[in-house]
Design a protein around this nucleic acid. Structure first.
Lengths: 219, 219
DNA sequence: CAACTATTCAATTGTTTTATTGAATAGTTA
DNA sequence: TAACTATTCAATAAAACAATTGAATAGTTG
């Protein structure tokens, strides 16, 4: 019977190895970043404001739990999620987190005191409006991520290039900007900029992943 | 732009609060226990081999992350999972864990060097055999859990009572014992005991929760 | 009201984890 | 081959955590 205790201890220790990966804010951020596209260590470091060595250590932890893999490309080491299971799991984790932590919603509202008109916009509705030529969909993420995957018919204008390319936008049409999902604020900045230039702009909270799921459901 | 950093930091810190709950083997064990049925602090302590104060502290952590709730009943405080979302999430978590940690499989095999013949037994098949009177299904968990929920037509014989009730079992029929799922070893002990008494016994890896899911799918 | 129970709280200890620094490695380019 | 780059490794200091103990609380029973 104390055999059972011993087994359980070992077993739950193994499970906790994965749990531990989710216990650090920075590691969660890394996982979310990687669920967008594979990235180099330095890329992650820049994106998260951590030192390279620190990122490397976190990636090691994630690798030990088999949550991420890496492939060497020239001088760079590109990390990616080990498996689509991991990405699905992260989605589930976010769902749970959001549901449980009411505070998260409040925090979001406090920071994003912008317009929320598009937040509830469903993807089928977006599709309809795009098909009717009513809106222009803008992907404001870095170009690599756009190239990795994007919502069909979306135009890639990374946030840095947005200001200079303003004039090339068609006039008299609503613009919808999206980035990596509800917790990424690139599109918020984009909408802010567009509005300050008198363009009717909205933020789409959804991500490419959401779009994929939507498409898979439809077919 | 450093506003964005600040928001992310706060946000991911909130997410990590849930993650931290999953980073301790003992807390995972508690969550699994509670996904079976609500339990008192002392009940959990006995079941996990921890001190009461220690369990209480872990439960507080879980409660802070809104993963568990409690209700007072007389002198006792009964804890339960906050939500079916939490229980679903734990299932997902186990799926991921098992998939990623190949070692877990190995550990299981090493310890459970018993028969695995029933492990792959699908629930519809079990149902068919039971309907045909080919097997007797035994629920060897503590009686409270049986009373909380059990697989229909299963007979409750808690492991402690099994030896004395051996004679009351019908002869010449295969016995299938189940408990809380693949990581609970009560049924392993039961099968061991039954076999030592010359009874043809098998272990079912599935749990009541699995049965519920199976039934819901069917209807 | 007093004795008793289950649980929680608070303080302490030893252990783990995190971020940081600077050096080491491996792969690339001139 | 030498200089350079991206990444990892190793050592450290600071912070967070887990388990333990014993006391405090709240609710129940005689």
């Amino acid at each position: 019977m104390s055999d059972e205790r011993a087994l359980k201890d070992v077993l739950y220790q193994e499970f906790a190895r994965i749990g531990k990966c989710l216990s650090s804010p920075k590691r969660l951020e890394i996982l979310d970043l990687l669920s967008q596209s594979p990235k180099s260590v330095e890329g992650i470091a820049k994106n998260t404001g951590m030192t390279v060595a620190n990122v490397s250590q976190h990636l090691q932890t994630l690798h030990n739990a088999r949550l991420v893999n890496f492939k060497k490309q020239g001088n760079f080491v590109f990390y990616e999620l080990a498996d689509s299971t991991v990405s699905d799991f992260m989605t589930t984790f976010h769902n749970l987190s959001e549901k449980q932590l009411v505070q998260v919603q409040q925090i979001k509202k406090e920071f994003l005191n912008n317009n929320f008109e598009m937040d509830g916009l469903s993807l089928p509705e977006l599709k309809k409006r795009m098909d009717n030529g009513e809106v222009l969909l803008l992907d404001v993420r870095p170009r690599e991520e756009y190239e990795e995957a994007h919502i069909p018919d979306a135009v890639s204008i990374p946030i840095e290039e947005l200001e200079e390319k303003l004039s090339s936008l068609p006039a008299n049409i609503d613009v919808v900007a999206y980035c990596r999902g509800p917790y990424c604020l690139i599109s918020v900045d984009a909408v802010e900029l567009l509005k300050s230039k008198g363009i009717n702009a909205f933020r789409l909270e959804k991500s490419v992943k959401d779009w994929m799921q939507f498409i898979n459901q439809e077919s």
